[in-house]
Structure formats: structure tokens, C-alpha cells
Amino acid sequence: MKTTIAHLKRGEKGIIKDIPIDIIPVKLFEMGCLPGNEVELLQVAPFKDPLYLNINGSFLSIRRETALLIEVEKINETPEI
């Protein structure tokens, strides 16, 4: 299973790998959600939705359904198990 933004835990960071362009709104990549950029999960709303992110210096919240589409590579700041 691929890792997406929705799989990050609070405070975890990742690098955006792949975005399904056809279904992701233009607005999102204009806000900096582009491959190669860093994303940090800041906060999760009750019922796990929506998610509050820092993408490339922009603070925004998106729904879980959108977050599940954006593939990331976790930045491991804790030692690997």
C-alpha cells in the first residue's frame, strides 16, 4: 500500500512524490502542493477529517479523501525500527 498524506501522524513530515493530476484541484498545486515539496501534518480534526497541513510554507486544511490521493515519502526523523 502506498503512503499518502493521510497516513502521516501528527507532527510527521513527508516529501510529496506523486499527485493524480486529473482529480486534484488546480488550486491545491497552486498553493504549493507539488512533487518534491515538503508537507507536515499539523493537526487532525475530530473524526479524523479534515487534516491541517503545512505544505511548502502554506498552511491549509484539506479533506481526508483528497489527502488519500497524494502520495508522500515519510521523512524519518526517528530511527528506523
Binding site: 484541484p25 498553493m31 479534515p50 498552511f59 486544511s61 484539506i62 483528497t66
Partner: peptide
Amino acid sequence: SFFVVEMP
């Protein structure tokens, strides 16, 4: 409609 909300 999609949900992308800036958190100022």
C-alpha cells in the same frame, strides 16, 4: 466544489 481552506 472541493475543500482547500487556507489557515491564515
